[in-house]
Every structure is written in structure tokens, then in C-alpha cells.
Amino acid sequence: MDSIIFDLDGTLWDSRETVLEAWNEKIEQHEKLNQPLTAEDFKQTMGLQMKEIGEILFPSLSAEEREVFLQECCDSECDYLKKSGGSVYENVEEVLNALSKKYKLFIVSNCQAGYIESFYDYHKLDPLFLDFENPGRTGLSKGENIKLIMERNHLESPVYVGDTEGDRKASESAGIPFVYARYGFGEVEKYDYVIDEFRDLLRLF
């Protein structure tokens, strides 16, 4: 193994509280929406791309209205995250520091452009990662973005760490082992490795 590629939400941090604040502010201002979102609403969309998230959370809007509104929410979300951050899981910085001495580290997340940068800006963990990718920049699926990171950085034997069935499928699509972060948001039955807390990565690798 030469590298570790990480999912972000449910794997490195939980940003739902900050994101909820940003999105609910936009919902309150929208003439067709009046029901604020909850943390549980967001939990059911973790790992999905933005178009799918919009269809689940805002079914009353047309496709065109959803696209415009989601962009407004995402812009607001990134601003909020840069100021307030999210809740990074216990021991993440310590473990990433240790892992970075042995492996190349990367992030691939199903998020909009600017989201991973907001994570970097607030929590100052960007020096530990060599590269990142997301569909907001490429328009590609998570599996394709994993392959892109592998090709761009000449990786020969990476693993992917994530917390949802979508993460497992993306790993399978990219042809690399999947490490299931069981403490995260999703339920996964098939995996190559499993961790119950982030620190377990030091035991595995």
C-alpha cells in the first residue's frame, strides 16, 4: 500500500450543524420553501451528488429552481464553513500526521467545488494532503474521481476510507480496497477492512 484516499463527510468530520445553519437561512428566504431541514434530513443524503440531494430534499421545486437554489445554498455553506468549520472526529489530526509519514494522503468527496477548500481553510489540515477531487470540479462520479487521483499522482496501491455504500461502490469501481468507517453516517455490509474509530487506522496500517 502506498497511499490512502479519504472521504470527507462521516469519515474526517461532521459538518451538518454548520451546513444546516447555512441552508436553513436560505430556505427561510425562499418564497416556495418554509420547512427547515434537520440533521436527519442531511444524514439520508450523505454520499450522494448534489443533483440527487436536491431531488430528495426539495421535491416541490422544479429541476431548474433546484439547480439555482442548490448553488445558493452551496455558496452560503462554504462561507459558513470557512468561518465556523465542522466537527472533526476525535484524533483525526494526530492520526493523519502519523499516517502522512508513511503514506501519501488524498481526499475524494461527493461535494461541490469549494467545500474541501473550506475544510482546509478552517482546520488547517491541507499540508497533510497531496491532492483532492470532487464532482463540483470534474462532473465525474466518485469512482471516476478516485481513478483520476490515482492517475494524476501515479498511485499503485491505494485504499479508500469512507462510511457509505456509495463509498464502497466507488472503491469497487476504482478497483481498490475499501475501509469502512463504521462510526460514520452509512451502513455497509461488505468491506475489506473496518474501523470503529479513526484511530483504528494506525492499527490497520
Rank of each mutant, 00 (worst) to 15 (best):
N110R: 10
N110D: 14
C111I: 12
C111E: 07
G114I: 13
G114R: 05
Y115F: 14
I116K: 03
E117D: 14
F119K: 06
F119S: 08
D121N: 15
Y122C: 04
Y122M: 07
K124G: 04
L125V: 08
F129P: 04
L130G: 12
D131G: 11
F132T: 12
E133K: 11
N134A: 14
P135G: 07
G136F: 12
L140P: 05
S141H: 07
K142L: 08
G143A: 11
E144G: 03
K147D: 00
I149Y: 03
I149C: 01
E151V: 09
E151L: 11
N153I: 10
N153T: 10
H154W: 08
E156F: 04
S157F: 10
P158W: 03
P158H: 08
V159C: 07
Y160M: 02
V161P: 04
G162W: 11
G162T: 08
D163P: 00
T164Y: 09
T164W: 10
T164C: 06
E165Q: 11
E165F: 09
D167K: 07
K169Y: 10
A170Q: 12
S171R: 02
A174H: 09
I176F: 01
I176T: 01
I176H: 00
F178N: 04
V179D: 03
Y180K: 03
Y180V: 00
Y180E: 06
G184W: 02
G186R: 09
G186A: 06
V188W: 02
V188F: 05
E189T: 11
K190E: 05
D192H: 01
Y193R: 00
V194Y: 06
I195S: 02
I195K: 01
R199E: 14
D200L: 12
